[in-house]
Nucleic acid binder design. Structure first.
Length: 275
DNA sequence: ATGCCTTATTTCATAAGA
């Protein structure tokens, strides 16, 4: 199974590039973030053989999962997620090819002294709780919850750089969000659910960055961040034959400010529904 | 070269992104 994640920064603005990229990269499952639409263009992706489950309400946020290996048990939102003040469309889950998949767009946080920062930490805690329930980790989870997915991937734009090596210059981020200990601990807490961080290889240079600001030529100077993450259950992560950042998708006219991350899991599709 | 910000909307300005 080839799984990918991509913050497209508006699926409407990115649709031509998204269609081109799907035809070139041929992922089995694609998790999307910042779709920024209430009505996802499902027909355009259906023409390429993808089913789509989308969750979007307005001009902000929005997530989706496109799959050509089945799309079942769709869940929109997290059971105990906080809102600002209302819940925002930042998480969608589905079962694709036998793997439980979550596409997430973690709140930005803005600045450490902003109310959005606390919202971000609470949201990450709610994400951990939801995943714990589905994985039924020892001593955790809600009694009676459905749970017990053997293979699970949670991926998307986490808006957290897990380590200093995940930003182009740690000194430039002092006092900023995305790198604070509390944010990194909230993300690291997800990994205690026996998940693994699949760090993709860059296709050029040494930095596994997935995001580069549009401004000031940040991309061509490789002044970026790794904030788009792929966390997989240990058994599944062990099947990752390759993982890379498709920087080609960040080039050229009208790109997203994020590049797709692609992971190839070897021989891991449990059951592709006959269609 | 990869190239100097972009998106949707309450649009000739604003909020948000990270």
């Amino acid at each position: 199974m080839r799984l990918a994640t991509w913050n497209v920064n508006s699926v409407t603005a990115r649709l031509p590039r998204l269609v081109d990229w799907l035809q070139r990269a041929e992922p089995d499952v694609l998790c999307l973030q910042e779709t920024k639409v209430a009505e996802f263009p499902v027909a355009e992706l259906a023409a390429l053989g993808y089913e789509v489950a989308a969750y979007g309400l307005n001009r902000w946020n929005g997530v989706a999962i496109a799959s050509r290996v089945g799309l079942a048990d769709v869940t929109r939102g997290l059971p105990e997620e906080p809102g600002f003040p209302d819940p925002e469309p930042r998480a969608i889950g589905a079962t694709c090819g036998g793997v439980r998949v979550w596409s997430v767009y973690v709140p930005n946080g803005r600045t450490p002294d902003s109310p959005h920062y606390g919202y971000k930490l609470h949201w990450l805690a709610a994400l951990r709780k939801a995943l714990a329930d589905e994985l039924r980790a020892p001593g955790e989870g809600t009694p009676g919850s459905a749970g017990a997915y053997a293979d699970l991937v949670v991926t998307g734009d986490f808006n957290v750089a897990p380590a200093d090596s995940d930003v182009w210059d740690p000194a430039a981020f002092v006092g900023s969000t995305h790198v604070t200990p509390a944010e990194r601990e909230a993300v690291a807490a997800l990994l205690t659910l026996d998940l693994r961080d699949i760090v993709p290889r860059p296709l050029k240079g040494d930095n596994p960055f997935t995001y580069w600001d549009y401004r000031a030529g940040m991309f061509h100077q490789d002044m970026g961040m790794r904030i788009d993450l792929v966390f997989a259950t240990a058994g599944l992560a062990g099947q990752a034959a390759d993982a890379y950042i498709d920087r080609e998708a960040r080039k050229g006219k009208a790109p997203s400010d994020h590049a797709p991350v692609v992971v190839d899991f070897a021989a891991r599709i449990a059951a592709i529904p006959e269609k």
